[in-house]
Simulated assay, not measured.
Amino acid sequence: MEIENMEIREDDLSGAETRGLIARHLADMRETSPEESCHALDADALQDPSVTFWSAWIDGRVAGIGALKRLDAVNGEVKSMRVEDAFRGSGVGRALVRHIIRTARRHGLRAIWLETGAQPEFAAARGLYASEGFVECGPFASYREDPHSVFMRLDL
């Protein structure tokens, strides 16, 4: 899917717009999930060397964010996927997921994983991931069974 005038760029998280979207993402996660079930990374954690972070821009405005965290030599995790409210339903999220999948393949990963919410507010995200080939699975890495979490995997 190609969105006119959209640019996805690797982001160093120094810009106020990007940091603002991360802050809104974290606030929303805390509103919908108990603290022990919030696995979203803040801006500092997203600057870890194991994480590559991207922002999507349309007409000079941040439209979405997403990251890929390398778990080991062959596995990665999708982190911090969020589309700015004004751009929801426009294909920004799908473009970011596809960008992350392409990058993971290019770097030789064999699978990418993710954790998302089980609540109704996350239904659109779960549908997006499923439509891109992710399937539900059990917990991975340091995650544990949690009624507020859905775990998904995509074999590359």
Rank of each mutant, 00 (worst) to 15 (best):
G76C: 11
D48S: 15
L109S: 10
H107E: 14
A130C: 05
P49Y: 06
H25V: 00
W57L: 06
R102K: 13
C38E: 06
K69A: 11
R105I: 15
A104W: 13
V92G: 07
G93F: 06
S14T: 14
I22V: 15
A124V: 07
R110M: 14
H99E: 09
V62Y: 03
E84R: 05
V135T: 11
R98P: 01
I65S: 08
L21P: 07
A118C: 04
I112F: 02
E132F: 01
G127E: 05
R105T: 13
V83L: 08
F122W: 10
H99F: 14
A86K: 02
R30C: 04
T103Y: 13
G89Q: 08
A86S: 12
G76H: 12
G89H: 05
R19S: 12
W113Y: 14
A95Y: 08
L114G: 00
A40Q: 12
A23Y: 03
A124M: 01
R106D: 14
G89I: 05
V92N: 09
P34Q: 12
I101D: 02
G117T: 01
W113R: 05
G138A: 11
S80I: 08
V62G: 01
R30I: 01
G117I: 03
M81V: 15
G20L: 10
S80F: 04
H99A: 13
P120I: 04
D42L: 13
